[in-house]
C-alpha cells in the first residue's frame, strides 16, 4: 500500500504512514489552516487500510503531539475510532503509542481522555 508522508511545518506535524515498513507516526504541533483539507488524506489512508490483508503482528502508531488545537482534536478522535475498527473488524493489531514530555501533564491527560473515549488501549510513553 502507498505510504503517506507529510512534512512538518511550524503548525502541522511530521506524518509518516508507511504500513509496508511498519512505520506510522505523527510528530509535532497540529493546528492546520484548514482541518478538513489537512486531515482528509490521513483519514482516507486509514480507510484504505481496511482493504489491505493484515498481518497479526503488532504495529505501533506513534502520536507525539506537543500541541493540537480543538478542531484537530476532533479529527484525532476520528483516527482513533478508525484504528479501533481496523483492529476489531479487519484483523490488524495497531498499537497506539501516546508519547508525551515527562512534565507535560496536559498532553498526558489528553491521551487518557482519547483512550477512554475510543475504547482502544494506549501505550503511554514519557520522553
Amino acid at each position: 500500500m502507498n505510504a503517506l508522508k507529510i512534512e512538518k511545518t511550524t503548525y502541522t506535524p511530521d506524518v509518516i504512514l508507511d504500513i509496508d515498513n511498519k512505520e506510522l507516526s505523527f510528530r509535532g504541533e497540529c493546528r492546520p489552516e484548514n482541518v478538513s483539507t489537512y486531515f482528509t488524506p490521513i483519514v482516507d489512508w486509514f480507510e484504505n487500510l481496511k482493504s489491505i490483508p493484515p498481518t497479526s503482528e503488532k504495529i505501533p502508531v506513534a502520536f507525539n503531539l506537543d500541541y493540537f488545537n480543538s478542531s484537530s482534536a476532533k479529527y484525532i478522535m476520528d483516527i482513533f475510532f478508525l484504528i479501533s475498527d481496523i483492529n476489531k473488524d479487519f484483523g490488524y493489531n495497531l498499537e497506539i503509542v501516546w508519547e508525551y514530555d515527562e512534565d507535560d501533564e496536559d498532553v498526558y491527560e489528553a491521551g487518557v481522555e482519547f483512550q477512554d473515549l475510543s475504547g482502544v488501549m494506549f501505550t503511554f510513553k514519557s520522553l
Partner: peptide
C-alpha cells in the same frame, strides 16, 4: 466540524 472549520469547542 462546522462549515467555518471549527469543532464548536474552542
Amino acid at each position: 466540524i462546522s462549515n467555518k472549520g471549527g469543532a464548536g469547542i474552542g
